[in-house]
Design a protein around this nucleic acid. Structure first.
Lengths: 337, 337
DNA sequence: CTGAAAGCGCTAACAG
DNA sequence: CTGTTAGCGCTTTCAG
């Protein structure tokens, strides 16, 4: 906490606080000699403005909160990095909030836990429903990420999961796969992401004239690679034939790779695998993983853009933005070189 | 920004602001009927205290900044998660600051860029030197992480890198390795971490009576897996025999694994590999990686503890804390099961 | 146990 | 172009 304040500088320079404020804020209409005199006093005293006081009067904090399930997750740490950068470009700083996917924490984010702390919130829900979100009235601007809940009334940014899943599935089909598994549906995950990806998967199959087999839609106990691995091992052991796998995310894909290894199956030769998120995990696994790659930069820029609009007073209905994605092809669907 | 303020509540409840403040803060000496009357008004109006105003008068923000090179890095995202949790336990929230390992950004963190914004700063330097840190006088409490710079005057938390490197190296020696490489020394990295790890590696070798071979200390261009891979490939191609590798971090270890694969060498059979950080990368690689596992919980708890001490007024010389680590043994140094 | 009043440090009308 | 002054919303002595 800086001890020296605006009035101290004003006193030393023999001017009013307004003048000091003017030079601190780089206002144009200040005579050069005045400016340099004041600047001298500032440097001499080592004056630093008290941000809190400034905020109280301006009403702006210059901070936004980023709330998501967990920091230590390949996808979310990618998001965090991108958002922090995008926010910086717009002159904002980022407060990180972990919800641990707990309903109470998510609701705390939604109701204005941050009131007066941040100018706006970017939130990737996981448990809370669209209804709950739209019912809670809040005065801090909010932008939603992901596909778990998409209330029409709130600004929202995501990639088109159905299309992405179709692209990924089609990639497997084009490579000759005919027994493509979806890994996987998580118990109690009513979030929209998995469902959308599953839909895309099914659409791609049906468009290719491949008949669906419900055995190929694997259930997974929870979001850990171990669970995915277990599920896949069980399926294959029980006789389900699989030559391609579309995974819900890279963690599941890594679990799939482990399962294949344990079963003595080669990837990509015997089973081709596609992950999702294009996280470090997919880049550095063995084999490296083909993965759906959301355009994180665009995602972050768009989200921050929408939020800043709102902060600056934009009113109106929820805006919904789709950002592009790519399919990053790696060893798990390509012959080894 | 909440529109309704303390005075509104006071007016509605027909009491003074002090009384409202008392119930908001759960002070003991308030008659139950008073309390419930005020609470009613609060609920009715949907009053939420303005944090900024509170701060201005208390001088405390309830926030700490966590500054480190990059959010999207397996080790730092682990740290972030741990710190966020530890901070929460002590009633603080965390502002994330990315320095991108740039000297200017690091210096900005050091001089009180955050003055009045946060109560304290936890900082993992990478470029800035001990001297620079101790020279800059600052009034916001600071706790340093890592081994890059360790000025005696500042609180500091780390694991004992020399000992950890010795343990890891000894593990390889015990497994029968005699040609153990260190991967690697990064150009222009005057940070202490690598040097300390290298020292521990050398000590372990010498204690085991293994004569050092400078060819085995590999240079790496930068901190990416690709660079580590390239370095290792080159070394082995040029005829250097290697049967074990101690890697500076998990990213390098992943690069090592890629190199071995490219060269047709099996791990752990032909070359055993030890990583560092125990990040997700080591857990899910193939083979999974034995890795030095710093006790992140303890690290975070200790750092937050020291910082909170300072915030609460602790004066005195820099305190230096060593937190424990383990060696998590995985496939890369164990026979496959 | 509760009320009145004095600021926290800064900004921004409004005058001059 | 610069000075005066009234708050931003809250906490907190100090009386009552």
């Amino acid at each position: 906490m800086s001890r020296v304040k605006l009035t101290d500088v004003a006193k030393l320079a023999g001017v009013s606080t307004k003048t000091v404020s003017n030079v601190v804020h780089n206002y144009q209409h200040v005579t050069p000699q005045m400016r340099s005199r004041v600047q001298e006093a500032i440097d001499l005293l080592g004056y630093k403005p008290n941000l809190t006081a400034r905020r109280l009067v301006t009403g702006r904090t210059g901070m936004i909160a980023l709330a998501f399930p967990e920091t230590n997750h390949p996808y979310f740490s990618m998001i965090a990095a991108a958002i922090v950068n995008a926010a910086e470009d717009r002159g904002y700083r980022v407060l990180i909030e972990q919800t641990d996917s707990k309903v109470e924490s998510e609701q705390a984010v939604l109701r204005d836990r941050e009131a007066g702390l941040v100018d706006g919130v970017i939130f990737q829900p996981s448990r809370v429903t669209s209804l709950q979100i739209s019912q809670l009235q809040r005065d801090t601007p909010l932008v939603l990420l992901g596909e778990a809940a998409i209330p029409l009334t709130v600004d929202h940014v995501m990639i088109d999961n159905v299309v992405a899943a179709k692209v990924a599935t089609k990639h497997l089909i084009d490579l000759g796969c005919r027994r493509i598994a979806f890994l996987g549906a998580v118990d109690g995950d009513q979030g929209g992401a998995t469902v959308r990806r599953l839909n895309g998967y099914q659409e791609a199959l049906s468009e290719a004239g491949i008949v669906e087999d419900s055995e190929l839609v694997l259930k997974v106990a929870y979001f850990a690679p171990e669970d995915a691995k277990e599920s896949l091992v069980k399926a294959i052991r029980s006789g389900t034939k699989i030559d391609g796998i579309l995974c819900r995310d890279d963690r599941f894909a890594v679990g799939a790779l482990q399962a294949l290894r344990q079963l003595g199956l080669e990837s990509p030769e015997q089973v081709k695998v596609v992950g999702w998120d294009n996280s470090e995990l997919s880049q550095y696994s063995n084999p490296s993983l083909t993965s759906i790659a959301p355009d994180m930069l665009e995602l972050a820029k768009t989200a921050i853009g929408l939020l800043v609009d709102r902060i600056e007073g934009h009113k109106g209905v929820g805006r919904h933005r789709i950002v592009p994605f790519g399919l990053k092809i790696r060893e798990s669907t390509a012959p080894k070189s």
